[in-house]
Design a protein around this nucleic acid. Structure first.
Lengths: 109, 109
DNA sequence: TTGCGTTATACTTTTACAAATATAACGAAA
DNA sequence: TTTCGTTATATTTGTAAAAGTATAACGCAA
């Protein structure tokens, strides 16, 4: 018997951050590239791009900064706000898991 | 800025109860019929049947009891266990919403 | 100045899932 | 015994989301 959850944060009915987007953003941080991050996640580049684009548009300030062209072709890096958003989301998510586990114990099913 | 969630309970990797299934079960309780409940939810009968069937199989004891044939054609009613499961799930769900709202306030995003 | 790997975008194809369709069995009541 | 609305199940159709394909622009380094 396990209780599971998915949480996400919306601003004006658009998804700002979610578990999958956090994973994607963290891979961008690691690899410096949206293209590489998408490949690691077995996600099409187009899908990955759409995800970060909608999150970026939902945010009050950008989560990522992209550079097109250059010696390595370009790349994508997280903004400080992007990093802090990841941290906050993950903290809330972990807290939620713990809370739900406690709740499940209280109710004998 | 809104935080949203979907929670569900699994037993051996099968979904026992979720928000949608609670809604379906409550409509079964109201109407006495899986068929009518599905129609209210704008859900195909087959989809609705599959949902309650998998939940039933995931449960240690049945959530519903069905009668096929009879003057009214048959029907479906909830077991006491089914009713208690609904109550527990809804209580946990509401508590989760409140918890997440508090969490969101703590983190300034 | 040429090449490379990236971002960005449009368009087509595939696929997974839900809906729709069809059909049989059931059993109390009229 | 006939009728009715239901449960139960299989099969086909439709659809929305994801994947795949294609292509252009970019700009640093060699």
């Amino acid at each position: 018997m396990k209780i599971k959850s998915k949480i996400w944060i919306e601003t004006n009915d658009r998804i700002l951050i979610s578990e999958g987007r956090v994973q994607l953003l963290k891979l961008i941080e690691e690899t410096g590239s949206l293209n590489k991050a998408a490949k690691v996640m077995n996600l099409s580049y187009q899908k990955a791009w759409k995800l970060v684009d909608t999150s970026n548009k939902a945010a009050k300030s950008p989560l990522i900064e992209t550079q097109v062209g250059g010696n390595k072709g370009g790349g994508t890096v997280l903004t400080p706000y992007g990093k802090s958003l990841i941290d906050s989301f993950e903290a809330i998510n972990v807290a939620c898991w713990e809370f739900l586990d406690e709740q499940l114990k209280k109710h004998s099913l």
